[in-house]
Every structure is written in C-alpha cells, then in structure tokens.
Write a protein that binds this DNA or RNA. Structure first.
Length: 716
DNA sequence: TTTGCCCGTCTTTTT
DNA sequence: GACGGGCAAA
C-alpha cells in the first residue's frame, strides 16, 4: 500500500458510513476500491463474507477479483468475498431464494435473441401487423423493467393511448411466456431481486445482515432497478462506498442514470465525499486533450483533472482511404513502434465503437503475424453449433425452456414449432411434455414416424443426461457423442471442441480451487451467461498479445499505446445516436473514455470509405476529431497521408493480387474453417497469382480454398 | 422431407 | 455481406 497518495489513503481508511468518491479518469478508482477491500480484511479484521463488491461488466469483475487476489497475503478466504456483476450476484441469490417468488431454482436465462424470438411469435399471434418492431419492443420492455414501471395505468388512459394498450398486452404475454418457461431475461434478474426484497422483508433483513459493507465501482452506471436494490441492502448499516465519474457514464442505453450518483448525498445523510483529480495514467497532452473534449458536454460536474506526468507525444491522427488501409496502418504501426521502442505486443490496444469492426483488423494483424486477442463474445456465442449445443444443455437443466427446446426440434421442420405451441396452449400441456409423449399427439400434429422417432431419441437422451446434473463435463461429453451419432452430417467433433474444453476447465476449476465448488450443469450455465468473459481461446497461455475490444469494454483499463479506429461520423458517433443531443453527449463521453485509456501514445484513425452492408460508403471524419484542440494533435501525419492517397488507392486495387505471407499457413499445418471444420493443408497452389490451399477436411474430404478470403485459422 | 435460393433485415454499446 | 425465414423445386 505504499504507492497510494494521501487522499487515496484517506479514502481507503474511511470504513464506516456512506462514502462517495468522484474520481477522474486515471486517478486510481479501481486501485482505491481494491486496496480498500484488502485493507478492510487484513488490517481491520472485517470478515470477507460481510463484503459485497459490485461491478457492471464481467470484464471489470474478473479484473477486480484478480487484483484483490494478488494483493491478499492470506488467500485462503478470498472466495468468501462476494465480488461480481450485479447480474451474477443477484442471480445467485435468486436461485437460493427462488421459492419465495414461485420461481424454480433451475431457471435458465434468455439472451436478447431468445427474447426477440418470443416477441416475434407474440406479434404474429396478435396479428396486428404493426409499426412496432420486435427489436424495439424488446428494448422498451427492458426499459420498463429497468425503471420498475408498473402497469397501473387506468382504463381511460389505456383507451386513449392505443399504442400503450397494445404494448401492455405484449408485455404481459411476454412475462407470462417467460414465467411458464421458467426463464429470466437479464432485466428480470434485477426486477425479481427487487420483488424479493420488497415483498419479503425477512429475506432482505438476512442479506442486510450478511452484506455489512457494500462497494460499487462505476456507480454512475447504475440504473433505477440496481439503485433500489442497493438502497435496500445498504439501509441497515449504511456502509456503502461508491466510486464513479459522471464523465464516464456510457451505459444510458441500458438504463443507467447519472442522477443516481449526483443525488447520492440526498439519499444518505453524513456522506463523506472525496475527489480524486490527479491523473497518474496519461501524459499531459492526453490529459489536456481529453479535458478539452469533455468540456464540449453541457451536462457534467466540473472537475479539474490534472497530472504531473511528462508532456509526452502529441496525439496522432491518420486518415486512411478505406477500412482495409486503416487496419493495415494500425498493424504496421504496431510493428514499427515495437521495433523502435521497448514496447511489447501486450502494451497495445485497439479500441472500436462496434464489435463488427474487429474483423478487418484481425485480418490485417493475422497477415503480419501479430498475436492478438479479441475481447467480447461476438464470434463465440453466436456460432450456430454452440448455440445448438447450449440449447441442449439448457433443456437438460430446465425442461420448460421453450426457446431452447424449439431450437432443438425445429431442425428440418420449422413449421412444427407453431403447431406444438398452439396445441400446448389449447391443452394446457407444456411443450416439453408434448414432445416427450409425442406418440399421443403424432396424429394431431401430422408428423411422420421419422420425426417422431427423432423426438423420442432426443428426449430420452436428455432425460438420461439429466441424471448426471452434478457434473457438467460428463453431460457435455455424452451430449457430444449423441449429437455426432444423431446428426453426423451437420456436426463434426470440432464444432464442439471449444465449448467442451470450456466446460472441462470450469469443472476443473470448481473442483480444485474452491472448497464447495459447483460442478453442476446449472452452475456452468450460470457462469457461462453471467460471469465468463473470454472467447474460448485455446492459446490462452500466450500472454503477449495485442488487445482488441470495444470502447465499452475498455473502461477501467489502461494501455501504454491506444489506437482508436473508425472515427467517422455515423460510426463514432454512431448513426443511431444522431437524433438527440443527450445521446451525442454519451458518445462524446465514450470517446473520452477511449482517449483516457492511453498512458503514453494515442493514435486515432478514420477511413474515408468504408464498406457497410456490402456497399462502399463515404463518411466524414468524426466531429470528435475536429473538437480536439490542435495544440495537442499531430496533424503532420494527416497531411502525409493525404499525399499518399493516390498511391494508396492504387495499392488498394492491386491489393488482391499481392502474395501475402500468410505466416503459419503452409503445407502440413492443421487449420480450422468456419464452415468446413478442421483440416490439414496438403499443398499450396498458385493460380492466377492467387494462393490456393488444398485442404483435406476431416469430414468433407479435399477442398480448395482461396487463402486471401481469410477463412482459415491455424488450429492447435 | 430436404435442399437451395430469394428476400428482407441488420450494425451500436452489455448483462 | 451475412443470416434467418419463407417458399418452391427436387
């Protein structure tokens, strides 16, 4: 604890009563919160089981856990500290207390796709082909839940407001469907926790007693639902410690409300308020430039973020012609900087506004053989086979999980879903029971013997596997062999390799590291949806990698060298937020977060042309680039790149024929192809200057694949 | 019953 | 440019 300044030290030593810390970027927010927890346990002697520490993203939770674990001298009771995201912690509590709410503890979780799928069905059923679109409805339902709106509208109001009446109807039927399926969506986790604490004061009391000390990171990100949970929990002891920065509030889209931090002093008497305004992270140029950016926002608490750090280099701006050129600039800059300095790959991060931007950057990094890791879960969770596999796991845990059940049975027979659903409604029998006793309904549903037999085999497998509930790995392993036998055409073993490995790791960890580890399937699913952060990365042990992530995920982190890419109007700020100034301010805060991640160097890039929906679109440079004070910006590079443009255009056109060194992709190497699975490269051929790999796939035999399409990943 | 093709939609961001 | 849904041909 030597490297804390006096105000930081004062903060961590203030243990009792409500404490609010307003801290600028890079002022040591996370350091304060982690040190305080360790201090409470090691110096004050507070029992770790009395401490609750909450974060908003899984990544932040993992980060906090790691930091505290590393700091603790005696790590034996580390596991007793309750650390996690709101969703993971309260989902755990709901599982224990589910009986109060008439909920079953084996509930599964619906992600957005699941929710949208139900809403689609509801809309079809209502049969008013409306202006309403299922995605917007899901968002609105989410908004209603996060703000704890209730449906106390009087009849007159509903009659007047037809749209509201319709929405209410959809909301109610959505809620009913979720309840019948024994599932919760993300917002339900918070909503039901509120119900639990509101209607069952004895339960609330027990948790108030347990969590005598509550700490919340990034408090500016709380929505109303989270705010009331905390208010209730902290009511008895009022030992609530929150840190935050209004300038870094970037979760308004999921209901976050800055007034929760602004009004903290009204909720709690005798609040001790601290301010941390010295930035230890970044160079002077970066601190001043980001102060300047945030000053464009009207709504903000005024702060004076300052630093004693060196001036440092100016912020670089690079204008690329296309998104490919942008990505290549980033890749070659990394190599160039690395050559000239002592920085390693792990010192670089590339930040972007939308997950989809990672593809082209990955492509360019791969080409230059730069090791990288993409944070966030886009490619993994959305992979079809994995969703299929998870659907089985979910039905094993919760037979009423309709969306998962439909996913399993509709293969090859999509129409059957509606028929079964109607029958289920008419007869009042659960979908699962209809499928289980399909023989009774075969005639009604007009299905053939083949489908019937498939259902029987699927259900009997699920029921057999359910017996092994306590060991997720055994279930998963058996499920793989079932799926391969059943459906060898669509799957091969490697489709499941990733998730199987993941489950194995999870079970192993639970068994070895924790005293009462939860190796159950239900525990794994909980962990998968609410705690795990990473893509399954089979090369995880290599640590020296460039980090790729969204700006949202980068909050709380720092890197010596930061690239912020895609700084164009319509992308960053995002087009969907043009409509109102409040949303533009949130985009600006997002840019502020991005810029303040940098310790030494910030390099901003944008592309004049970018492919969007298969079309080449021209975009103007982001307004945030123009807002940067020119004193802190290196525009020299900008001009050079303009001169280079003509050359670059040519370069871009010739690009296709260039023989890239696909380091690693060569004869004899094992590769993974998204559509064809695992194979071995037999030969590399040259055809019209294009390199083609002759690959023997394990399932599909030999195929020729154009290497530049970049569908090949080294498999190890 | 299965396959293949056309069409509309989608790109914010996270739990 | 990718993906799911719907529909028609094999």
């Amino acid at each position: 604890m030597n490297y804390l300044n006096s105000s930081q030290r004062k903060i961590i030593e203030t243990i009792n009563g409500p404490v609010l810390v307003i801290a600028g970027a890079g002022a040591g927010k996370t350091r304060v919160i982690t040190h305080r927890i360790v201090h409470m346990i090691q110096n004050i002697g507070i029992s770790p089981s009395r401490i609750l520490a909450l974060t908003f993203t899984k990544k932040a939770a993992i980060e906090m856990k790691n930091r505290i674990y590393n700091m603790m001298v005696d790590k034996t009771n580390f596991d007793q500290i309750t650390i996690g995201t709101f969703h993971s912690i309260f989902s755990g509590i709901l599982r224990k207390e589910s009986h109060w709410l008439g909920l079953k503890s084996n509930y599964t979780i619906y992600d957005h796709k699941d929710s949208e799928s139900i809403i689609k069905k509801i809309l079809e059923n209502i049969n008013i082909n409306t202006y309403l679109n299922y995605k917007n409805i899901r968002k609105k339902i989410s908004e209603y839940k996060n703000n704890l709106y209730y449906f106390n509208f009087n009849k007159k109001k509903l009659e007047k407001d037809k749209e509201l009446e319709l929405f209410t109807k959809i909301y109610k039927s959505y809620t009913k469907r979720c309840f019948q399926a024994n599932v919760l969506d993300f917002d339900d986790i918070l909503l039901h926790t509120n119900h639990l604490f509101f209607y069952f004061p004895n339960v609330l009391k027990a948790y108030q007693k347990k969590f005598q000390y509550i700490l919340i990171d990034e408090y500016q990100d709380t929505n109303f639902s989270q705010y009331t949970i905390i208010k209730n929990l902290a009511f008895q002891h009022k030992n609530i410690f929150v840190v935050g920065d209004d300038a870094q509030s970037i979760y308004a889209f999921r209901g976050a409300n800055i007034s929760n931090i602004l009004n903290f002093h009204l909720d709690y008497k005798n609040v001790k308020i601290f301010r941390l305004e010295q930035n230890y992270r970044s160079t002077n140029h970066i601190v001043q430039a980001s102060n300047n950016i945030i000053s464009f926002n009207k709504n903000q608490i005024l702060k004076k973020i300052w630093t004693n750090n060196e001036k440092g280099e100016k912020i670089k701006i690079y204008c690329a012609n296309s998104e490919l050129e942008e990505a290549e600039y980033v890749a070659s800059s990394i190599l160039l900087i690395k050559e000239k300095t002592n920085f390693q790959f792990e010192n670089f991060a590339i930040l972007y506004r939308a997950n989809i931007q990672s593809h082209i950057i990955e492509y360019s990094l791969k080409k230059k053989n730069i090791p990288y890791h993409v944070y966030g879960s886009i490619s993994f969770e959305k992979r079809k086979e994995i969703r299929d596999f998870l659907a089985y796991l979910r039905v094993i845990v919760n037979p009423n999980d309709e969306e998962s059940l439909f996913r399993i049975i509709k293969k090859g027979n999509p129409k059957i879903v509606n028929n079964i659903l109607n029958l289920s409604k008419k007869k009042g029998i659960t979908v699962y029971n209809i499928i289980k006793n399909i023989e009774n309904y075969q005639y009604l549903l007009k299905i053939n013997n083949k489908t019937k037999n498939r259902f029987i085999s699927v259900i009997s497998t699920i029921e057999k596997l359910r017996i092994e509930q306590d060991n997720a790995y055994i279930i998963a392993k058996n499920l793989v062999s079932f799926l391969l036998k059943e459906n060898s055409k669509n799957y091969d073993n490697n489709d499941f390799q990733y998730i199987l490995h993941n489950i194995y790791q999870h079970v192993k960890e639970q068994k070895e590291l924790k005293k009462n580890g939860d190796t159950s399937l239900s525990g794994f699913l909980q962990c998968f949806y609410l705690e795990m952060n990473e893509n399954i990365d089979h090369k995880k042990n290599e640590t020296n990698k460039v980090s790729l992530m969204t700006v949202h995920l980068s909050k709380g982190l720092e890197f010596p060298i930061i690239f912020i890419v895609g700084l164009e109007e319509n992308l960053f700020p995002s087009k969907s937020n043009f409509e109102n100034p409040t949303k533009i301010e949130e985009e600006r805060r997002l840019f502020y977060v991005a810029l303040t991640r940098a310790q030494k160097k910030a390099i901003l890039t944008y592309a004049k042309y970018r492919f969007i929906w298969g079309e080449k679109k021209k975009n103007l440079p982001s307004r945030f680039i123009n807002e940067l004070n020119k004193n802190f910006v290196d525009i020299e590079n900008h001009i050079i790149s303009k001169k280079k443009e003509i050359r670059s255009l040519n370069h871009f056109h010739n690009h296709e024929n260039e023989n890239y060194k696909y380091l690693g992709i060569k004869k004899g190497v094992k590769i993974f192809h998204k559509d064809f699975g695992v194979g071995t490269i037999l030969d590399i051929e040259l055809q019209n200057q294009n390199k083609i790999a002759l690959i023997k796939f394990q399932k599909l035999g030999e195929k020729r694949i154009l290497i530049k399409l970049n569908k090949l990943v080294i498999y190890s």
